[in-house]
């Protein structure tokens, strides 16, 4: 039979004491732990959050769309036009002494340009050509001949289409710069002289005009429209002579609009004979001569 061992009285007391002390320690610790928890749970836990960055800066509108910029451009244009007008007065005094006239031919070069140059040479007359970029590429030899013979070289853009060249404020500048580069590639001449297709009024807006001036272009219009394009025959000579005479009376130097085309060239000798017989002296346009430019005066609008 298995003998059970029993604690004596002393042992019992020892176990009792150990258990009591242990229970006391546990009570204190757990009580403290619970008290801490209770204390914490009685307070709001983490009521505050870290803060985000608030967007504090707003993007800005382009200055070019502002009324201020518009007014700056208008003022700049007014000043430039006033300056050119002043210079033209001085120029007119010089031109009057030599009875100067400027013949200008647009839209070339063409397959007829050589014939045109022959006639001008024959009459020993000067002229200025406002040419289209693609035509310069097509007839480079004619352009080289103009350069060699010291004719005036200018630009007429690329497209000759009002919906392209007057598309936006930068498109005339873009076309003229392209044509300028083509001319320079062929002749080595960097020309700032330009004529806008159909003239600078009404499609060339002030924005476009300002941009061209910013890029150092000189805008040339005319004061004698030969109407060679519309009339298409010898009648244009009479029209031109009549206008030149009227202009002479009003004290202005004629800047004649002609076109580099077959019908014009055919009847050109008649006009040149008239000029020679009446003592006119043809001059070529250079960048030093103050330009004759139409002013908008509220007539310009975007297409």
């Amino acid at each position: 039979m298995r003998q059970r061992k029993h604690l004596n009285r002393k042992g019992k007391w020892l176990v009792f004491a150990i258990m009591t002390i242990t229970a006391f320690i546990i009570a204190v610790l757990v009580g403290d732990h619970e008290a801490t928890k209770a204390k914490q749970s009685s307070e709001p836990i983490s009521s505050l959050s870290a803060a985000p960055i608030i967007p504090t800066f707003e993007s800005k509108e382009e200055f070019s769309n502002s009324a201020l910029n518009q007014s700056i451009k208008e003022k700049s244009l007014e000043e430039k036009e006033a300056l050119i007008a002043e210079k033209r007065k001085d120029q007119r005094e010089k031109e009057q002494q030599t009875k100067a006239i400027y013949l200008t031919f647009d839209d070339g070069p063409t397959s007829h340009t050589d014939q045109l140059l022959d006639i001008l040479d024959q009459y020993e007359m000067q002229a200025t050509f406002f040419m289209l970029g693609p035509n310069i590429k097509q007839y480079p030899d004619a352009v080289k001949r103009m350069a060699n013979e010291k004719f005036g070289l200018g630009l007429h853009g690329i497209s000759h289409n009002i919906h392209d060249i007057y598309q936006n404020s930068q498109s005339p500048t873009k076309e003229m710069k392209e044509a300028q580069q083509i001319l320079e590639n062929v002749t080595g001449i960097h020309s700032p002289l330009i004529r806008l297709p159909y003239g600078s009024v009404p499609y060339l807006t002030e924005e476009m005009r300002y941009s061209l001036y910013q890029h150092e272009f000189t805008i040339w219009d005319w004061n004698v429209d030969s109407e060679d394009w519309e009339l298409g025959d010898a009648r244009y000579v009479q029209t031109t002579i009549k206008e030149i005479e009227e202009l002479e009376q009003s004290g202005q130097t004629p800047v004649v609009l002609l076109h580099d085309k077959k019908e014009t060239i055919t009847h050109l000798p008649k006009l040149l004979s008239y000029l020679k017989n009446n003592g006119y002296h043809t001059e070529k346009i250079t960048k030093e001569i103050p330009a004759l430019t139409f002013t908008c005066n509220g007539r310009c609008y975007a297409i």
Binding site: F57, S66, A67, N69, K75
Partner: peptide
């Protein structure tokens, strides 16, 4: 505070743009 100041600065920029050179 930075936002308030930035709004004032932007408003002033817009006002500048609405003036004329005259």
């Amino acid at each position: 505070n930075l936002l308030k100041l930035s709004q004032k600065e932007k408003l002033t920029y817009d006002e500048i743009g609405s003036l004329t050179i005259a």
